[in-house]
Structure formats: C-alpha cells, structure tokens
Design a protein around this nucleic acid. Structure first.
Lengths: 277, 277
DNA sequence: TCGACGATAATGTATGTACATAATCTTTCG
DNA sequence: CGAAAGATTATGTACATACATTATCGTCGA
C-alpha cells in the first residue's frame, strides 16, 4: 500500500478501506502525484500534499479541486481523513468550500498579513537587554471629570497611570493607561513596584480581546524630553483598548521612539508555518 | 434530552449515545452549567460553553479541565464531538493538551494580539474614497550593480518601481518596490496602467508568505515634497519582503503620512471572534 | 420562456469503534 | 532506596456509517 502509513495498522489493514490504487484519471490537469511523504499523521500529510499542489501552481487560485471522494481514493485514505485535512485548510483560509459546489483554492490573501503586538518587556528581554520601568504618575478619576474615556459611562471610577519603559537604561516607550476600576477594583492595592501594569493586567484579566491602532506622530516637547530625543522626532503610537465580557478594561497609549522600536512579524497565517511551506 | 440539539435527529435519537443526565458531581469547582445554547452545531456549542466557563473565570488559567469522557457525559454528546471542540480550542491557542496529563487552560495570551496589514487600495476604497496611483519610476538592474537586495544573489535581474498612492487626490503613501525578475519575468511586459503593482503581484504569485517591519520615521525633504507635508513630518514606514517557495519575490518600502494613515485591527486571534465572546 | 420543484451531488455533523501514543503512576527487583 | 519495567490514563488518529444541509442542475408544466 504505497508505504505511506507511518502510524496505525501495526498488523494488517483492518478491512474495507477505499484503497483503490492510484491509477485514477481524474479531471484533466488535476492529477497530483498522490504521493504522501509519510511524515506525521495522515491528515497532515494530506494537508501538505494539497498545499504543495497549490504552491507549485498545479492547482491555481479559484480552481476547483477534486471532491472528497476522489481525493479519498486518490490518496488511499478514508473520506473522513480527507475531510479533516481539507476542512482544516479551509478553516485556515487556504481553501473555500461550498456545499454541492465543491472546494476551491482561495483567491484573496490580501488581508491575511498580520503583525503580532508583543509586550515591551518581552521584546526587550528577548533582545538580551535589561528591562526596567518606572511609574511616573498615578491618579484616580471619575469618567467625565477631568478625563474622558469615550467607551465608558460617565461617573465610572478610573485609575490613570503614566509609566516609562527602559531598555538598558535608555527610555524607549512611554505609556499612558486608563484602567476601569469597576472591572478590576483590586488594582488600587497594587503598587506596581515589581510587575508592570500591562503584565499585571494580563495575568489578572484572562481572555480579554483588544483592538489596536498604530500611527506615526511627531514627539511633543514634553514627550521628547521624557524619551530623550529632539522635539518632533518620529514616534510610533499604539493605542490599545482591551475588553472583557464586552466591558472595556483598559485603554493605553504607548509612544515609542521611531529608531529604537519597531513592530515586526511574518505570516501567512501562523497556521501556514506549521505546514513549513 | 435537554432540548439542545438543533440539527440532526429529526426523528428520535439514533441509539446508544452517552446521554447520562447532567447530575454529575465532577471535580470541585468544575461543575459547568452544562447547558448548551442550541445555536449551531454541537461542537460549536461545546466550544462556546467551554470558552464561556473560562471567560467567566470558572475555569482559570493553568487549571485542568475535565477529560473528554467526563465532558462527553456532562454535555450529553459523544467523545468525538467533545474531542473536536476541545481540539479546535487547543489549535486556536485557548487550551493546552498533554497526553495522559489532560487539558489545561492556556496561560499566556501575551503575544496573541495581531494587526492585519491590508492593501492600501482596499483601505481607501473601504473608506468610500477614490483610490488612484501613479508610477513615478521604473528601471531594471542587476543585484549588486547600483542597487542591493540583501537576500538575493548578486547578478539577479531586478525591476525597481517607484509609485505614489492617492486618496481623493491627496497623496497618502509612497511605495518603492523591488521585484525579482527570476521569479516573475512577465512583470516586464506589464505597464501598471490600471492594476497597482501590489495587486498584480498578489494575483500572479499566490500563496506567498511575507515578513513585515513597521517603524516611524521623519520624512526626508524629498519624501515630504512628494507627500505634500513639511520635512520631518512623522511617517509610518512599512517594509515587506514576500517569499514564494523560499525565494524572495518582492521587497517593498511603503511610506505613509502619519496623520493620513494608520494600521488598526482587533483580536484575540480571528478565531475567537467566531465565538463572539 | 420562465419559474417551480424535485433530484442530485457536494460538504457538514454526529456517533461508534478501534487502536496508537505518550505521560504518568505503580510496582517490582536489584 | 532507586531505577527499570509495567500498568494506567488521557489524548490523538483513522475508519465506517448515517444522516443533515445546501447549492446547483434538470425537468416539467403553465
């Protein structure tokens, strides 16, 4: 049997599988090598095989690919196994499936590039530098009184924090943060002598979602002084609002010196990396 | 049967499912409501139910959750269905599974925030504005002769493009692009009168992966003139290198005026959104 | 000719069964 | 006592089966 099964079936094949030999004609131009590489579980091998066909341009964007039954006999595995592989590829955005119509190679990968946004402390530490931070200011307000957090009802108690982050002693990021005290009242008892606010919140409020906006701004005189650059220096500004159970938890503005900090990442979809394409 | 099944089972239950009533004690503190919401497929309901437990803090980070057999009888579905739900949550990064040890709520959500990077044309169009672009320059070099693309061998033919992007007539982005002619030789015959280079390449070279770097820089005098801002204005600089079959395809530098362009997006992992948490 | 409607073909979900795999726990023996 | 060997347990994969769901295609009739 093609020597493809690495796992399972220590004895003989348990019985009645599809197992028709790979002498299928299929639709013109759609005849894959049908050789699985034998590495890892079958459904992963199928994923790789299919992704490979696409990658090599044998199956082009928008094109329909063989249905599950055909793939099943082509690769000599059951329909469920094919289904799992194909459904995963679809879930990861490589394929589009429509009932009755079939499975198609996805066309648009335009908006699939994504940049991970990491905690500044992690970034600095990973660079092998010494990370420090300093709380510069800390106050409590009620929303609407001297401060305004748009997504929060007026009167909600808010803790404000102002903080500087250092890499090897050089200031690299300024942080201005609002915390919703209705959601995280314990924060008033936390001094942030050791743990940075971002870290503390992440550990405290699990499973939050967030939205981000990144832009470039010129440093004001005040910020420039804090960050040790000339006024007007280009800075990366990241605004992040974090939600938990559809309630805003925290709203932060990070400001980082342009030539000391950057965002970077690679893609296609993390999942594609697993396929090591 | 708890009125949970929305699909399937038009007649009666086909037979021998687990179906023990939800009067289970389970481990202390781990007793979910065991009420599925009846919306959508069972495995999705399970996903939501489990995610909900975590979200509501009933199952905390690091904690072990009931095994598949227990969940199966708790929710009154088969082990496979539970397995599918839990395995998906694990694949999406919400849970961590270890054989024999069990399933645990994932701890770190730190690096899960991600920013999508979209095509400028799409962004402008979505804003309801008129998108235009203009090719300003176009040359052909060999790598190392007057130009250098680090990841490419010397001598490789390269097409260079310089391009401006407009929103409602206002310049918002400058693009400087290198294209590897060994990979996409057809590009020399393309005038880019209608289709922008990014779009053309995406349509031509499917399934590429890319890495990005985003930083903030001050506009040089030349760039400032092109973009219609004063010299020194803060700009967002995006560098993107695209690969296909581990060969570099194109290397682009985008430069966008800080107050006319920003990156934004929301997260936790796209997949979480599906759960509408 | 066009629309309704039923047949059909594709994917989607759920369950049972069987075995593989990998930790972890337990026992046994030097 | 400690290490090796074996039992146990939880997850992982594969397959068969059965039925649901949903476009799409044809056909038939007004």
């Amino acid at each position: 049997m093609q020597g493809l099964a690495r796992q399972g079936l220590t004895g003989q094949n348990r019985g009645n599988g599809p197992a028709s030999p790979p002498d299928h004609p299929l639709q013109a131009g759609l005849t894959p090598d049908s050789t699985l590489d034998g590495r890892g579980p079958l459904f992963d091998q199928i994923k790789r095989a299919v992704a490979g066909q696409i990658l090599r341009g044998r199956w082009q964007a928008g094109q329909r690919l063989p249905n599950e039954a055909e793939l099943s006999s082509l690769y000599g595995v059951s329909r469920q196994t094919v289904h799992k592989a194909i459904a995963l590829l679809a879930r990861e955005g490589f394929l589009v499936r429509r009932r009755r119509a079939g499975t198609f190679v996805a066309t648009s990968r335009r908006d699939r590039f994504a940049l991970p946004i990491e905690d500044i402390g992690d970034v600095v530490a990973r660079d092998g530098r010494v990370y420090e931070f300093r709380i510069r200011d800390r106050k409590i307000f009620r929303n609407g009184e001297g401060i305004r957090w748009p997504d929060l009802p007026d009167g909600t108690p808010i803790l404000t924090l102002e903080c500087l982050h250092f890499s090897d002693g050089t200031p690299i990021q300024h942080e201005r943060r609002l915390v919703n005290l209705d959601v995280v009242p314990e924060v008033v008892d936390e001094s942030f002598d050791v743990v940075a606010p971002s870290r503390w919140l992440v550990d405290r409020v699990p499973w939050s979602s967030a939205d981000h906006t990144v832009r470039a701004v010129n440093a004001t005189a005040e910020m420039a002084a804090l960050l040790g650059v000339e006024a007007g220096a280009a800075c990366l500004s990241i605004r992040r609002q974090t939600m938990h159970l559809s309630r805003p938890v925290t709203l932060v503005h990070f400001l980082s010196v342009g030539d000391r900090f950057s965002l970077s990442g690679s893609s296609i979809t993390d999942s594609a990396t697993e396929l090591n394409l």
